[in-house]
Design a protein around this nucleic acid. Structure first.
Lengths: 227, 227
DNA sequence: TGAAACATAATTGTATACAATCTTCGATAC
DNA sequence: GTATCGAAGATTGTATACAATTATGTTTCA
């Protein structure tokens, strides 16, 4: 959606597409036609190509030469590596965050959790997943490590694709408990506990994936973006 | 250099520019004119813009809207964060590498060290620095963690810029000893030792930076790229 | 002399046109 | 009936043209 922004620069469009991917409105493997995207956003292919290139660099989109752009389909190996990388970065980040978190930060985190619950209650699974990612993103921001936070952002985004492909038992709200426990550690400024909880949380996530099968579900571009 | 490739696609040009940055032929702050680059590489601005966008995503180039592209000038804070991130990723990577390294890998690493020494002996400081980075890059490859290796690549590239800006006492061949010690740990398949050595090596690098002053040195585009 | 304002030039941002490549689908041969 | 070849169509790759913005240098006024 959001066609007529004041400056529909590539960045804006890339962000919109990324959101659609996070929320599972665009499924892995979906072809992203340049002309169609151009019509949807009301810009020329020049802008679309820049946006697609950006997404490709974040590994959310795969560019095949002379073939076009497709929503990425992470392999089993990539899925493992992404969560292993997260398990390397985020626990340490959680520790830093716990050691410097402010009351305002705590309130913001709680807000994310509340929104996530509301989305689950409303049956908006995609939005809930996105908000769950934002929880992790917020922690990286609180830790005040911009460079690592950017890597984490990228890994969270790729996790959305991985979950779309390999998470079979979707209904489970397995994250809620872990996020609540993390909140308690943050509130107590217990860095060691936060680190341990985050580590286990990420390993739980990885083990909850079924890396044997791939789920498949497609949707048209206009359906996913215009709504 | 390297103007008439069979397919001077953006990727090729971005790699060439990245090499020039690694080898300190292009200094931080240098303006990258689209038209001039287009003439140098014999392609239109379309290709150049794609290459610049890619480099911007790797933080080697900064894009200022309506102003143009410039070789990035990492801040003091960014310099610290980059080496902290490396200190978080690379020691673990070195451990994995040590545990699975093959004889062929060892030979390749030794080859890098030899090349580096040859470059130092020949007074090619820029090339030596680049080869020093390749040593780290090779370790990430050996560890067989593609995702983390990519992050490491990016951090190594940014380190080149940081060294250009903040490394005052350049003559010192401070890395040689550390790389030799790492080689011994790898040869002994001693993961714990490799992890420890890498950690200290990176902290040494950070502490050898003078984060109070910025060095400045410019060169013309053609001078840096056509040679 | 110094600063502000304007005109001109240069550079980047975007759209469009054309070329190259791939896909599709039908015809033909076996 | 299947497979292969080929032509038409569609899509991406690149170059160019034009618009928008910024940089520069000159003029004018205090």
């Amino acid at each position: 959606m959001s066609a007529p922004q004041p400056h529909p620069i590539p960045e804006t469009i890339a962000a919109d597409l990324a959101l659609a991917i996070h929320e599972h409105r665009l499924a892995p493997g979906t072809k992203l036609s340049e002309e169609e995207l151009g019509e949807i956003y009301g810009v020329s292919r020049t802008i679309i190509r820049a946006a697609l290139q950006r997404l490709a660099h974040d590994r959310l989109v795969e560019l095949r030469r002379n073939r076009g752009a497709f929503i990425a389909q992470p392999t089993v190996r990539e899925a493992r590596e992404v969560f292993e990388a997260r398990a390397l970065l985020e626990p340490r980040t959680a520790r830093s965050a716990a050691e410097r978190i402010t009351e305002a930060d705590l309130a913001a985190l709680q807000h994310h959790i509340d929104d996530e619950h509301a989305a689950i209650a409303a049956g908006e699974a995609g939005r809930a997943l996105h908000l769950s990612g934002l929880f992790h993103r917020e922690i990286a921001r609180i830790a005040d490590q911009e460079t690592i936070a950017e890597f984490t952002d990228q890994l969270i985004a790729r996790s959305s694709l991985i979950i779309a492909l390999y998470w079979q038992r979707r209904g489970a709200l397995c994250e809620s408990h872990a996020h609540h426990a993390l909140m308690k550690a943050f509130a107590a400024r217990d860095g060691a506990l936060a680190e341990e909880l985050m580590k286990n949380h990420l390993l739980d996530l990885l083990s909850s994936l079924d890396l044997r099968h791939r789920a498949t579900a497609y949707a048209s571009l206009r359906e996913a973006l215009n709504g």
